[in-house]
Computed example of a mutant assay.
Amino acid sequence: MLRKIDCVMVRVDDLETASQFYGSMLGLRPLWRDDGSVGMGLPETDAEVVLHTMDLPREWGVHYLVDDVAAAVSAWREGGCVVRKPPFEIAVGWCAVLEDPFGNPVCVLDLSKGTRATLPSVR
């Protein structure tokens, strides 16, 4: 079901300050930006660090890519597991938060709407 880590969500108070810090101190590069988030690229993976100002619980940091969120949620329920947050729409597709038997969130997303457009300066 899980294909890879798609992104790590990091809650920040100021996107500009955070993107400058993560760029200059950690070597990440901005990939895309919207009103509430900035996708930052790591040099050796296509997984992103997404700096955001959204009101999401901090424990929902790691998001795994799946082919289809609705199918993943259905399989999870059929396996008798808890769905903490049912599928909800996001800019690139759908997201849901599952819960493992130990109470940990398992955030899944799909790219059913496609990936975000990269910033012009990023190649």
Rank of each mutant, 00 (worst) to 15 (best):
R29S: 05
S37C: 12
E59W: 13
D46F: 05
L26E: 05
L31I: 04
M25E: 15
V49A: 05
E59V: 11
W60M: 04
H52C: 08
Y64I: 04
V50C: 14
P43E: 08
E48W: 08
V50W: 11
L51M: 09
H63P: 00
Y64K: 03
V49S: 03
H52F: 09
S19T: 12
A47E: 00
P57T: 03
G27D: 11
V49F: 04
Q20K: 10
L15P: 06
G39A: 13
A18T: 02
G27N: 03
S37Y: 05
Q20N: 13
Q20Y: 01
P30A: 01
L31T: 04
M25L: 14
D35W: 00
P57H: 06
R58Y: 14
S37K: 07
D34T: 05
R58L: 12
D46K: 13
M25T: 07
S19N: 11
M40K: 09
P57K: 14
E59K: 13
D55C: 09
L42Q: 07
S24D: 13
A18N: 03
E48P: 03
L51Q: 02
Y22Q: 06
D35K: 09
V38H: 05
D34S: 03
V50D: 12
D34K: 01
R33A: 07
E16G: 10
E44S: 13
A47G: 03
G41A: 15
R33K: 12
G36P: 04
T53V: 15
G36C: 04
G27T: 02
A18P: 09
S37V: 01
G39K: 00
H52G: 08
G36Y: 10
V62S: 10
E16D: 10
G61Y: 02
Y64T: 01
D55Y: 12
G41H: 04
L28H: 08
L56A: 13
A47Y: 08
D35L: 12
Q20H: 10
L51T: 01
G27C: 07
E59L: 07
